[in-house]
Simulated scan of single mutants.
Amino acid sequence: MSYAIPPAGLPSQADDLTGTAVFTEAYAFMPAGVMRDIVTSFIPHWDKSRAWIIARPLSGFAETFSQYIVEVSAGGGSDRPEDNPDAEAVLFVVEGQVELKNSAGTHVLEEGGYAYLPAGQGWTLHNRSDKKATFHWVRKRYEAVDGIAAPEAFVTSDAETAPIAMPDTNGAWATTRFVEPTDLRHDMHFNIVTFQPGGLIPFEETHVMEHGLYVIEGTAEYLLNRDWVSVGPGDFMWLRAFCPQACRATGDGPFRYLLYKDVNRHAKLPW
C-alpha cells in the first residue's frame, strides 16, 4: 500500500501555478502542489515538528473538526501534544514510524497505523527512528451523550482492517472502517474509501456530515457541488454539510482516500 505525503520544499521560479486550488461557499480543494514549506505551522510543545493545517472550524463552513498533516523529524515529538481536555483525536501514519504512549500502553505505529485517542486522556508521541515520520491528526471536540459511555483508546492499522464492499458493487467500492458504524459512543469516523479502476459513486451524495478527504493513492474525477475536479495523490477536499459529491475512479490502480465525517449525534439547534 502507498500513502501520499505533501511535496514540501518550494517550487522553482520557473514553475507555473497549479491553477486548481479553489475555495468556494460549499467546498475547498487544495491540490498537493500547494502544500509547501512556506505554509506550514509550528505547534506549541512539539519539538522538531511542523504541520500543514488543512482544515479548521470556520463559521458558516465546515465547523466540527481540524485536520493536520504533521511531519516529525528524527528525535522529535511531544510530551504535551494536546492541551484541550475536550479534544478527541485520530492519528494515521503515512510515512515512517512513531512511538505513541497512551492509556492503552506503548505502541509503534508504522505506515498505515491508526490510533483513536479519547478526550481528556493524556498521550505522548515521539519519532525514535533516524528518518522523518508523517501522520494525519484529526481533532474534534467530543460530544458526550447522557447514558452512553465514552469510547476507549485503541490502536490498529490499515493492514489489520479488512475493507467492506458497498452493496451491489462487486467490490468496486469498499470502505475500511476502523470504528463500527453502529457504535454510538463515537461521534466521528476516519475511514479509508477505496475504488477499483472504473468504480464510482453513482449518485450525488448530499448529506449532513461534513467531510475531509485526503487522497492517498490513485486518481479520480470528483464532483464537488457543481464542479468535476481531477484529483490525485496528496490532494485534499474539504466539504461543508450538504455539499453534493460523487466520484468516478480513473487510472489503472486503486483510488484511495482518507475520509473524515461527523456522525451519530443530533443536529445542533441554535436556541
Rank of each mutant, 00 (worst) to 15 (best):
T24H: 09
V98E: 05
V34Q: 05
V72C: 02
T20M: 11
I54G: 08
V34P: 02
F29W: 10
R36G: 05
F92S: 06
I53A: 09
F42P: 05
A32S: 15
L17N: 14
S78F: 03
V94Y: 04
H45Q: 13
S66A: 14
F61N: 06
V39K: 07
E25T: 15
D83T: 11
E25L: 12
T40K: 10
E88A: 11
I43N: 03
F65N: 04
F65I: 06
V93E: 04
E71G: 01
L58I: 15
T40H: 04
E25K: 15
A32T: 08
I69E: 05
D16I: 11
P81Y: 06
R80P: 00
E63T: 13
W46V: 00
A26T: 14
S49D: 03
L100W: 01
V98L: 15
A89K: 11
M35C: 10
V70W: 00
D16G: 13
S49R: 01
F65D: 02
G76P: 00
A55I: 03
D15K: 11
F92R: 08
K48I: 03
L17I: 13
E88L: 02
G33Q: 12
Y68M: 05
T40I: 06
D79Y: 05
E63G: 02
R80A: 11
G60A: 05
W52D: 04
P44S: 09
P57E: 10
Y68F: 12
D37K: 04
V93Q: 04
E82Q: 08
V39I: 15
